[in-house]
């Protein structure tokens, strides 16, 4: 096995792993002084460090110690240290999980910018679905050490291949029923759905995935009879949990009509 130091990689740790006795500049220069970069001249090193410090916006803080930096600034030091040697692959192990929601969004943008600037492949581990969808060119969904699905964010979201991918990433509701060819008959209902795109695992298990925004709630009329069980106001939309028979469905709905827990409603599906 090639020892870690011989691999051409940069890594951002979940805990940042900054060295408390080194300044920001010393952190960034550290990889450049390793045997891996022995061919670089002094000027090249200075230039590379300046570039990494510049593109992470750390210029004003370069003489500070980690203890004197905020969470976001520490994160950027960890990033700068990882990219300064221009490695061909960057590993990021849940780099944003230690930050608060506001900073997370900002750092997502910065990491994407850095990715564009350096062109290095980034291997990014996260269990925040929206982070994965927002940042990745390609997502690998893993469960219990095995790959569930590989694809672009759109493929994963719109066309999940496994039950886990469907429920974990796009929060799909699963209708129970019987498949015949490309047609799905929902149990207990006189409802036929047809979709040739649904993956084999769903067909084998007699399930049909429906994303929360695919369900419409109507006050009454034809559709699946259900009761509103819970309601979370989320700003742009309202998240309902709706009881249909003995299952709870998640439905994202806009404001056109508001329902309250206990209301009898009827659910219809859109494409």
């Amino acid at each position: 096995m090639v020892p870690v130091e011989k691999r051409d990689l940069g890594m951002v740790f979940q805990s940042f792993a900054l060295w408390p006795h080194m300044t920001v500049r010393q952190h960034v220069e550290f990889p450049l002084k390793s045997p891996r970069h022995r061919h670089m001249t002094e000027e090249e090193r200075k230039e590379a460090a300046d570039r990494a410090i510049g593109c992470t916006g750390l210029k004003p803080y370069e003489n500070r110690l980690p203890g004197q930096l905020s969470g976001g600034q520490r994160q950027r030091v960890a990033l700068a240290r990882a990219i300064v040697g221009q490695p061909s692959i960057l590993l990021m192990d849940e780099p944003l999980s230690a930050l608060d929601a506001e900073l997370k969004l900002e750092m997502r943008r910065e990491i994407r910018n850095i990715h564009k600037l350096t062109g290095a492949t980034v291997l990014y581990v996260t269990h925040d679905q929206s982070e994965a969808l927002a940042m990745a060119d390609r997502i690998i969904i893993m469960k219990d050490g095995a790959i569930e699905q590989v694809g672009t964010p759109r493929e994963i979201y719109m066309d999940p291949q496994t039950v886990f991918a469907a429920t974990f990433v796009s929060r799909c509701n699963l209708l129970k029923g019987v498949w015949s060819n490309d047609c799905f008959k929902v149990d207990h209902e006189n409802l036929l759905l047809s979709n040739p795109m649904i993956a084999a695992e769903f067909r084998a298990k007699g399930l049909y995935p429906v994303r929360p925004e695919q369900i419409n709630i109507l006050p009454e009329g034809k559709g699946l009879p259900a009761i509103i069980a819970g309601k979370q106001y989320n700003g742009r939309e309202i998240h309902y949990s709706v009881q249909y028979r003995d299952e709870i469905f998640t439905v994202y709905s806009s404001f056109q009509t508001e329902y309250n827990p206990g209301d009898q409603v009827s659910l219809t599906l859109s494409a």
Partner: peptide, 9 residues
């Protein structure tokens, strides 16, 4: 580990 990822033994 961070130091080793930076290329040090």
């Amino acid at each position: 580990w961070a130091a080793r990822a930076c290329g040090y033994t």
